[in-house]
Design a protein around this nucleic acid. Structure first.
Lengths: 253, 253
DNA sequence: CGACATGTTGAAGCGGTTCAAGTAGGGTGG
DNA sequence: CCACCCTACTTGAACCGCTTCAACATGTCG
């Protein structure tokens, strides 16, 4: 009895229309009939262990992936072996779209925690997109969004001081998490300090110092990976570094 | 007579299949019939004066543009009025695809020199892409390529020293120009030192010093905007900064 | 419980910025 | 056509933000 119930429940959740990420993910805006067609090509609920790979740099493109739960980092590996993190993927986000141009993955995706994804064979997605205008549009929209995110990061990297970069990163995480139904002011970072440092182009030590600094000033409460935002306004100010007012940006209460 | 001849010639050039950028641009891989259909929606040969705008940040997305000749910079403007250059567009490259997600342009495109573009109404492009699988694929491919370019720049910005950034930038320009039929080792930079500095996240002074430095070491010949690459191998080495061997990277010979 | 990874904090050093001064082009009006 | 001006670029010197190096603390996993 109990077992029967469980099966029905998981069956139910196994469709896009019942997925909590529905309105952020690929099927956004699709009508019921179209949705069912998309549903058919998706291989659902593949589970990915912490530190294992979804795909690696150089592998031919077979599928793209939608994150159901958990999180990933995607990174390039340069010739000298060092890695450059490109971004973190949260539930509802698509992974692997960067591979389309070369037909092979140009970065590696690694699970930061035990995660679950929907695997979408790219060829079938592509042909389906030709039949469903809204899907086609959503595909373009998601790629365009990735470009936008990358460009924002470039802006941070190119001209913002360390404090602004970290503040902006934390704010971004807060927003993305709250869009996904999590608390905006109280969350866990699934990535290490080293990963954050790498993404933001700074040393781990700097991240550590800034987090302490933020805490001393009452902007955040930091307990290892658990972050509580105490002064959202101040954090916002820090994230939009204005040209004047360089130092002492958040000394006073 | 002469006039008649001229009209025919410009008519000829006014079609994708006769455009010199054909195999780099949107129609790449299309069959003749499909090409003609694409051809019909394109408004050809709009001329854009130096320093004028193709579109500005915030404007609703109406068209995307293919560069025919000349070059553009695209940049964000932050709240405090400073700009962040995202990239430069050369002939055969598409501009405006970043606007799809928000349906309005998130950056501004400004001509670096007198240029010419093909204007492609986005709605018509989108519906056409649904009819022509290869066009759909090419659209995704071009967007994916943009993601790739942005990610490479992020890598430069996040962890490469100034020398490597500039070397890599010059190498990239050389490659892109040679793909477009220009000389690989001898070209003009259409953008100012300030623009390069902005893109690469450094001060103008640093660009200037490094160019002098490169010249002293015989890697380049620099005459204002005209660059001649004298030692391609050395430049390649500089662009792939290896973790060891930090200083004196190109002292000898 | 020990061992190793991860994170924190302090102090010194450096790459690149900023400030300052000077040079060279390129376009305009006389 | 040349003198002028203004912007773009170059070069030098001082300064600073962040990195690096080093030591220590704290968690985590076998």
């Amino acid at each position: 009895m109990a077992n029967h119930q469980v099966i029905k429940l998981s069956e139910l959740k196994n469709h896009c229309k019942n997925c909590s990420m529905y309105d952020l993910c690929l099927p956004m805006g699709l009508e019921t009939g179209d949705l069912d067609n998309l549903d058919k090509v998706i291989k659902r609920r593949q589970s990915v262990n912490k530190n294992s790979f979804l795909y690696r740099m150089g592998e031919p493109l077979k599928s793209v992936y939608a994150v159901r739960s958990g999180s990933f980092k995607s990174y390039l590996t340069n010739p000298d072996g060092t890695e450059q993190i490109i971004g973190f993927a949260l539930p509802g986000e698509l992974l692997g779209m960067d591979a389309i141009s070369e037909e092979r993955h140009i970065c590696t995706a690694k699970a930061l925690e035990t995660s679950s994804v929907c695997k979408i064979p790219f060829e079938r997605l592509e042909s389906l997109a030709l039949e469903i205008p809204n899907l086609h549009r959503q595909l373009l929209r998601l790629m365009s969004k990735e470009i936008q995110q990358d460009q924002n990061l470039m802006l941070l990297l190119a001209q913002m001081p360390a404090e602004t970069r970290l503040a902006s990163f934390l704010l971004g995480m807060s927003e993305r998490l709250s869009n996904r139904g999590y608390a905006a002011n109280d969350f866990n970072l699934s990535m290490s300090r080293g990963d954050i440092a790498n993404l933001l182009g700074m040393a781990v030590e700097t991240i550590s110092r800034l987090l302490s600094h933020f805490q001393e000033n009452g902007v955040l409460k930091v307990e290892r990976k658990h972050i509580t935002i105490l002064k959202l306004d101040t954090l916002r100010k820090l994230a939009t570094h204005c040209a004047s007012n360089h130092s002492d940006s958040f000394q006073a209460s």
